[in-house]
């Protein structure tokens, strides 16, 4: 799953709190860091990536800008009623280049991954690419 973009593998972004027509949430999973989804004000901000089938996820990599704190929740299966806390991380502020953070998820199985950006280094944040390692 590390080679191809998530969208080629059938993943979808099913929810995103913000939208700028020019920077839609699909840009998160197209595998390209030149395209991005951008938040349009206030926190928290979130998006949910739905994988085509339950997948063992050992880690995710997030390329972003201005994100300060990220919380990840997961759903074990499509019919699970609730998200469970998976992990959280503080991101360092970077100037002039993207933040790139690998986040370990301990190889747990998931269908839905929910990314909650609780705070930012600025009023607006962007997410350029999320990849999933299994």
């Amino acid at each position: 799953m590390t080679e191809a973009s998530l969208s080629l593998l059938g993943a979808k972004v099913v929810v995103a709190t913000s939208s700028d027509e020019n920077h839609p949430p699909e840009n998160i999973i197209d595998g390209n860091t030149n395209t991005f989804w951008m938040s349009t004000g206030m926190f928290p901000q979130e998006f949910i990536i739905r994988l085509p089938e339950p997948t063992m996820v050992s880690a995710v990599t997030v390329d972003s800008y201005n994100v300060k704190h990220l919380k990840i929740e997961k759903k074990m299966s499509q019919n699970a009623s609730q998200f469970e806390f998976a992990t959280q991380k503080e991101f360092q502020n970077t100037e002039g280049h993207l933040q790139s953070n690998a986040i370990s998820l301990n190889g747990s199985s998931a269908t839905d991954l929910r990314f909650i950006i609780t705070t930012g280094h600025d009023h607006f944040v962007s997410v350029h690419r999320v990849t999933v390692q299994n």
Partner: peptide, 16 residues
């Protein structure tokens, strides 16, 4: 205008 400034900054970023 803050949003547009921020968006321009982000568009000109180099990869991490």
């Amino acid at each position: 205008s803050l949003y547009h400034e921020c968006r321009e900054t982000i568009q000109s970023l180099s990869p991490g």
